[in-house]
Design a protein around this nucleic acid. Sequence first.
DNA 1: CCCGATAATGGCACTCGTTGTCGATGCCGT
DNA 2: ACGGCATCGACAACGAGTGCCATTATCGGG
Lengths: 140, 140
Amino acid sequence: MTTSSSRTPSVPGLRATRQRAAVAGLLDELADFRSAQEIHEELRRRGEGIGLTTVYRTLQALADADEIDVLRTGTGEASYRRCSEHHHHHLVCRVCGKTVEVEGPAVEHWADRVATLHGFAEISHTVEILGVCAGCRATG
Amino acid sequence: MTTSSSRTPSVPGLRATRQRAAVAGLLDELADFRSAQEIHEELRRRGEGIGLTTVYRTLQALADADEIDVLRTGTGEASYRRCSEHHHHHLVCRVCGKTVEVEGPAVEHWADRVATLHGFAEISHTVEILGVCAGCRATG
DNA sequence: CCCGATAATGGCACTCGTTGTCGATGCCGT
DNA sequence: ACGGCATCGACAACGAGTGCCATTATCGGG
Ligand SMILES: [Zn+2]
Ligand SMILES: [Zn+2]
Ligand SMILES: [Zn+2]
Ligand SMILES: [Zn+2]
C-alpha cells in the first residue's frame, strides 16, 4: 500500500498501456506470490479487459526489468510478486502462501565463499525458505 | 563410479525390474543433473528398451525415496541427480552444468533462525548457487 | 518349478502452463 | 491529425508431465 502509482518508471522502449498499468497496479496491492492465471482471473473479475497472453508477456517484461520477483512452485509453474529493489529472499508459508521478505549477510557471504573456494566466478544464487506460519498453525 | 550395484536397496512394496535398474545404474555414473527426457534418450541410445512414461515414474519414485535430488531449471523442467544421503546443496556451473555438492552450518542456522523469528515452523529450504567454473572460464 | 495375484510397463490420449502467430488496435513522436 | 510501430488478444501450437488400461513381468506360495 501507498507505493501504487510511484512505480512503473516508464521503461525506455516500452509503451504505457492500460493493460500494463492494470497488471502493475494489481501487483502493487497483492502481498503474496500469484501465478499468471490467478492475476488474469482477478483482473477479469474486476472488469479489466485483458487477454491471458498479454498478462503472461507483461509479467515476463516486468521480471526482465527486475520490477518483480519470480519463483517456481513445486509443480514448476511460475509465480510473481512485487518486491523491494534490494537483494533479498523469501520466507513462504506452504499452507496459505503468506510471504515475508528476508535478508542477511550470512547467506550471501556463505554462498560467495563456498563458490569461490571451488573456483567458480560470476556467482548468483537462489534461496527460498518454506514453513508454516503462526496463523496457519493456530487454525490447524 | 564403484557405487554401481550396492545402491537400489530393494524398497519394500517395490519390485526389482530391468528398467528400474537401468535408470538407477545410469544415474550412478552420471555426475550432473539430467532431465527425464535426457535420461530416456541415453538409455535408448544404449539399447535399453524402456518407455518414457516409465522413466518419469521411476525418477519420481527415486525422488520420493530420497535416493536422488530434484531441481527445476530456469524453464521449470525437472532435473535429477544421484546424491549423497546427508543434507547438502548444489553449486552448479551455468555453462557446462558441472555440479558440486556443498554444505555448511551457516545457511542451515540462518534459515532456521530467520524463519523461527517470523513465527514459522516445520521449516525447510532450497538453496542453489550458480556460477561459472574454472574450466569454462579458461575456455572462454 | 510352476502358477496366480498383482505390481510394473509403455503406447497413447490428454491436461495444462506457456509461447508463437498475425491481423487488428492504440500509443506517441512529428 | 497522421503514421509507424509497439502492443493486444483470440487462437493454434508446443512441450513437460500424467491418466488410462491392456499387456507383461515379478515373486511369493504351493
Ligand atoms: Zn500461513
Ligand atoms: Zn541472496
Ligand atoms: Zn563449467
Ligand atoms: Zn540446507
